[in-house]
């Protein structure tokens, strides 16, 4: 039997909450520390179980939600995963080369991938990189993460 997206979410919530409730009961938390996780967790478990029961009983295909404009969203999980792949790439780039290099690389390549021309992509890359540097490093005095590469080099 193939589970729907909702049923999978209910199962996941059920498992995590059950773990948290059991953990609260078996560890040496004081009564005041364990009561709410157990009470609220119990309610969450009941809700998730009820949702799962409804899903399994109904077994209806999930319909996409309408967007703000009333038109149906044409996005798919596959489409999402492609863009999350880009986001993960950006995250890895930040981790290895830091914000100051990762931002221009990501913005230019992702903007081009989404269909922008060379000039708009270049303009938005330069403007955004300069704005982020000015706003965070200069105005807010936040030292943005420099990445593993620069840590090794220095």
């Amino acid at each position: 039997m193939k589970l729907s997206g909702d049923a999978r979410v209910y199962l996941f919530v059920l498992a995590i909450t059950l773990f948290m409730v059991v953990w609260s009961l078996v560890t040496d938390y004081r009564f005041e520390s364990r009561i709410l996780p157990v009470l609220i967790g119990g309610i969450v478990i009941l809700l998730a179980a009820a949702g799962l029961w409804n899903e399994v009983r109904a077994q209806k295909p999930h319909e996409a939600a309408p967007d703000a404009g009333g038109a149906f969203v044409r996005e798919t999980w596959r489409g999402y995963s492609v863009h999350f792949g880009w986001l993960t790439g950006f995250l890895l780039a930040i981790y290895f080369v830091g914000y100051l290099l990762a931002i221009p690389i990501f913005v230019f390549s992702y903007t081009r991938r989404l269909g922008s021309g060379f000039l708009p992509a270049m303009a938005s890359t330069l403007t955004l990189s300069a704005f982020i540097y000015a706003a965070f490093e200069l105005a807010l005095d936040v030292k943005l993460y420099r990445g593993l590469l620069f840590s090794w080099l220095s």
Partner: peptide, 8 residues
């Protein structure tokens, strides 16, 4: 143009 800016 919007998506990369907001994500950054």
């Amino acid at each position: 143009l919007l998506a990369p800016i907001v994500l950054v």
